[in-house]
Each structure stands twice: as structure tokens, then as C-alpha cells.
């Protein structure tokens, strides 16, 4: 059992996501940075789909009722056990009764706490991921608060304290991010110049960027990027409107400003989407902090597939190394 003493800014139980229900409006949820989430799991002997705690900017304070093996990956929030600093990206042994505390993240936005055995809350539609909008999954469908008690599953027998990863596995969250995008979907609605503006602008991550969408600011009038046309039947009157359609996770929706849809996304609607962030880069973007800037780089679908494959290969190799 994990006892939450302080909830942190916004801490939720997350996993690899809830799939199969997009057609009834259910986004996948799950850890927005799957890279850090998965490595944290592997370090403690869990499979990728075990549930971790996703912590935003400032982590919770929690107490362990039993001995445990934990790992913290992602943004560095300087974790400490009973006041003593512990390493990140490393499997750490915890004694029953010890308290884990975090500081504010100095680089990156989200860290993941994995516990051997996984956070064992009940599954909803085959996933433990929290989706706060309708209050399902995770712990009572909401962010964690003081007093919450989270069950922990049965650890794998051979998980080892001290397991760690090479330094080059750990991302540099402080660097300026280039987010790779496959342009398409409804990008025919953009003028050539509009497309250049989207790809050439340094976009600032807004204060409202969250798990639903990363809103991006710049001094750009979005309507000016669009071709004028007589709007088709059913599409709505604004030039950025289209007949309502499904939004891919990672797509860039042009709703007054570009919004990159994250894992708690609205699943569809009437704004033109003009490209989709390559799947590994969705996690990179999710580590972007409010007021940091990002730029988009257009890549082909073949390049996107290669990027995904090497991301998968890297994680598979780490899984192999840590889980055997």
C-alpha cells in the first residue's frame, strides 16, 4: 500500500492507455511520456503496461506501508527517502515506513514513479489509466490527494535493487525541442505561406497546455494561414472549420491557435487538423514546460516510421536488458 501524504500539483495513476473506444469518444489516456513511464517500469521488473504515478511539476509525498522497489524516471524532481537524496533512473529499495518526497522539477514537466508490482488500482475498460474529465480509472478517476491509499501488485521475483540505465538513455529535458510532424490530414486548407508560418514559427507552450492538449502561442492570426473558400455544407462558417471529423492523438488542431492533442484529447470536432506529431515526439512535447518554445519539423511518413522503429528498438533492448 502507498499512502499519499500530499498529492502534489497534479498526480495521476497512468499506464499504456485504454484502447478500443475512440468511436464512442473515449481517448486513450495513459502516461503522456511513454518513454520515461516504460523505463521506470522495466527498472523495477514490471512490464510496460504496469501502472505508474505520473507527477506534474511537483510530485507527491508518500509513505510505503511495505518494503518496496521503486524507480523514478522523467523530469528530475530530486526525490528523497526520509530526507536522503536518491538516484533517478535507478531501482531503489525502500523499507516499510519510509517516506518519499519530491522537489519541484527544474527541467522537464513530468516524472514517473514505478513500484515493483505496479500500482494495482482496479481496471476500467481494461486499463488503469486515469481520465479525469469523466472521472474514470486510476484512483477514483481523479488526481491524488492526501489520505489516498494505493494498492501495489505482486512484484516480479527477480527484480533487483540498483538496476540502472546508461547516461545516454536519459533525455536532456533542458534543450530546445524540435517536434517532428507528418503534415497532412486537412493541411490542404492551409495556404503555402500558412504552412511555412506553422513550420517556421517558434511556438510558446501556453500556461493551459495539459493532458488534453498542448496549446501553443505566437503572434500569428490562425485564420490568415487558411485558404479562403465557400464553406462546404455542414462545415460551419469559420475558414478553420471542417465537417466534424476524428482527431488523431498527436494531431495539430487549428482552433484559434495550434493545439497538439495529447492522451486525454477531445476525440473529434470541427476544426481542421493539419499534421500529426510522430508518436515518440508526443512524449518529448509532454516534457515541455509552459513558456518554453518548440518548433515543428516536417518529416515524411517513412521517416516517421523509422523514428518509431528506433524508439521501439531502444525500449525493447532496455526491456531485454532489465527484464531478461
Amino acid at each position: 500500500m502507498l499512502r499519499i501524504k500530499e498529492g502534489g500539483l497534479s498526480t495521476t495513476v497512468q499506464d499504456t492507455g485504454r484502447f478500443g473506444n475512440y468511436h464512442i469518444g473515449m481517448p486513450p489516456s495513459g502516461a503522456v511520456d511513454q518513454y520515461a513511464h516504460r523505463i521506470a517500469n522495466f527498472l523495477v521488473g514490471n512490464e510496460a503496461d504496469a501502472a505508474t504515478l505520473e507527477m506534474t511539476y511537483s510530485g507527491p509525498t508518500l509513505e510505503f506501508e511495505e518494503d518496496a522497489l521503486i524507480a523514478v524516471c522523467g523530469a528530475d524532481m530530486s526525490p528523497s527517502l526520509d530526507g536522503e537524496a536518491v538516484s533517478t533512473w535507478t531501482a531503489i529499495g525502500v523499507d516499510a515506513g519510509q517516506s518519499l518526497e519530491f522537489q519541484f522539477a527544474t527541467e522537464g514537466a513530468r516524472a514517473y514513479l514505478a513500484v515493483a508490482g505496479g500500482v494495482d488500482v482496479e481496471q476500467v475498460m481494461e486499463s488503469r489509466a486515469t481520465y479525469t474529465l469523466i472521472g474514470i480509472g486510476g484512483y477514483e478517476g481523479r488526481t491524488l490527494e492526501a489520505g489516498d491509499e494505493l494498492p501495489v501488485g505482486e512484484p516480479a521475483a527477480d527484480a533487483q535493487e540498483g538496476a540502472t540505465v546508461d547516461d545516454d538513455v536519459v533525455p536532456d529535458y533542458g534543450s530546445e525541442d524540435t517536434i517532428r510532424v507528418v503534415m497532412g490530414l486537412c493541411d490542404y486548407r492551409l495556404t503555402d505561406e500558412g504552412r511555412d508560418v506553422l513550420l517556421g514559427t517558434q511556438w510558446k507552450i501556453s500556461d493551459e497546455a495539459d493532458r488534453v492538449g498542448y496549446r501553443l502561442d505566437a503572434d500569428v492570426d490562425i485564420q490568415d494561414l487558411f485558404e479562403e473558400r465557400e464553406q462546404p455544407f455542414g462545415a460551419g462558417t469559420d475558414p478553420t472549420n471542417v465537417v466534424d471529423l476524428g482527431y488523431p492523438i498527436g494531431s495539430i488542431q487549428m482552433a484559434g491557435q495550434p493545439i497538439v492533442l495529447m492522451r486525454d484529447a477531445v476525440t473529434g470536432g470541427g476544426y481542421a487538423t493539419v499534421g500529426t506529431v510522430v508518436s515518440p515526439d508526443r512524449g518529448t512535447l509532454a516534457q515541455g514546460r509552459s513558456h518554453e518554445t518548440v518548433t515543428f519539423e516536417s518529416v515524411s511518413v517513412d521517416e516517421a516510421l523509422t523514428i518509431r522503429e528506433s524508439w521501439n528498438d531502444q525500449l525493447d533492448a532496455l526491456r531485454e536488458e532489465l527484464l531478461g
Binding site: L9, S10, T56, Y57, A109, D207, E208, A209, D210, R211
Partner: peptide
């Protein structure tokens, strides 16, 4: 301080 629709 409000960020990502949460408040510190």
C-alpha cells in the same frame, strides 16, 4: 501559480 489548469 496556475499552470496546466492546476494551481500551486
Amino acid at each position: 501559480i496556475g499552470v496546466m489548469k492546476s494551481f500551486h
